[in-house]
Computed example of a mutant assay.
Amino acid sequence: MSRVRPNPARRETPADHSDSYVYLIRNSLYVNLTDRCTLACGFCPKHNGSMEVKGHELYLSTLPSHEEVIPLIGDPKRYSEVVFCGYGEPTLRLKTLLRVARWVKGRGGRTRLNTDGLGSLFHKRDIVPELAECIDALSISLNAQDESTYQQHCRPSLSGSYPAVKAFIARASELIPEVYVSAINGLEGVDIPACKALSEARGGIFRERQLDVVG
């Protein structure tokens, strides 16, 4: 059985707290499917006491079904894109992700998935063809130019994670129109030009992110 990082420690929440299954940033609607992850990145705010992005609290007390998420989206054409992204890894909820994404595409919306690139490793099969049916763009977090730096900052729970990310970038670039690959400027030992070269060699479009800037 593949291992997954557990939810962040359960917290006392106000009586009027309600989970944010969707949240709006600029003109993009984000879908928050899970706060579980295959990584425990040292730079991730959720491991440093915060699960807020742009005023939205993303802590989940329950994981939403597609039946709960879809009515919250409404007309997806109202948004520039519908993005699957929270403080967890959306591909861990692959069935729900695909059901919602297919619904969005069927109603003329644009979809993007933010991912750590470990979905195929976790599910032990190539999931890219399934994603390609309903995802217009991928944003993949590479985070490092070599395995030792990746291990230092991302602390994966699955063996073989770093080569799996690189393979996922290459595979996704074959089937999905837009594949963006990112690394964070400001992390110790991360070589941004090397990350860019590695990404572009596998067909990805590189995007540099900045440390502690989220959303």
Results as ranks from 00 to 15, higher is better:
179 V>M: 00
160 G>F: 05
191 D>M: 06
151 Q>W: 14
161 S>G: 04
151 Q>K: 13
164 A>R: 07
158 L>G: 05
144 A>D: 08
178 E>G: 09
188 E>V: 09
163 P>Y: 13
161 S>R: 07
149 T>F: 09
177 P>K: 07
167 A>I: 14
189 G>D: 07
160 G>L: 13
160 G>Q: 14
186 G>K: 07
169 I>R: 02
163 P>R: 11
172 A>R: 01
143 N>D: 14
177 P>C: 06
151 Q>C: 11
184 I>T: 01
176 I>D: 02
162 Y>T: 09
141 S>F: 07
166 K>R: 14
165 V>I: 15
179 V>K: 00
168 F>T: 02
166 K>C: 13
156 P>R: 01
151 Q>P: 09
181 V>T: 06
176 I>H: 01
154 C>K: 07
141 S>R: 06
171 R>T: 08
187 L>Y: 00
170 A>C: 09
172 A>Q: 03
190 V>N: 03
145 Q>S: 13
162 Y>L: 12
162 Y>D: 03
142 L>Q: 08
144 A>H: 05
182 S>Y: 03
151 Q>V: 14
161 S>F: 08
141 S>I: 07
172 A>C: 07
158 L>K: 01
151 Q>Y: 11
178 E>D: 15
160 G>H: 10
157 S>H: 10
182 S>N: 14
188 E>S: 12
143 N>F: 02
145 Q>M: 13
143 N>C: 10
172 A>F: 09
162 Y>Q: 06
172 A>D: 00
184 I>Q: 01
166 K>Q: 11
151 Q>H: 12
177 P>M: 07
185 N>S: 11
161 S>Y: 12
150 Y>I: 02
164 A>L: 14
166 K>A: 05
182 S>P: 06
167 A>T: 12
145 Q>F: 10
141 S>N: 10
172 A>V: 04
185 N>Q: 08
148 S>E: 13
189 G>R: 04
144 A>I: 08
170 A>Q: 08
152 Q>F: 12
157 S>I: 00
186 G>F: 06
142 L>Y: 06
177 P>Q: 04
182 S>H: 08
170 A>N: 02
141 S>T: 08
164 A>T: 11
164 A>D: 08
176 I>S: 00
190 V>K: 02
169 I>C: 02
184 I>C: 00
158 L>W: 08
157 S>T: 05
178 E>N: 14
170 A>P: 11
159 S>H: 13
155 R>Q: 05
163 P>H: 12
146 D>L: 04
148 S>K: 14
174 E>D: 15
147 E>T: 15
142 L>A: 07
142 L>H: 05
175 L>N: 03
158 L>Q: 04
160 G>V: 13
160 G>N: 12
190 V>R: 06
143 N>K: 11
162 Y>A: 09
166 K>N: 13
162 Y>G: 01
182 S>C: 11
158 L>Y: 08
163 P>E: 10
157 S>D: 06
170 A>W: 00
177 P>V: 05
165 V>T: 12
167 A>H: 15
150 Y>M: 05
180 Y>D: 03
145 Q>N: 15
153 H>Q: 13
143 N>Y: 01
142 L>G: 04
147 E>W: 05
153 H>S: 14
176 I>L: 03
180 Y>W: 13
160 G>R: 14
147 E>H: 12
147 E>N: 15
178 E>A: 12
184 I>R: 01
188 E>W: 08
157 S>M: 09
154 C>I: 13
185 N>F: 10
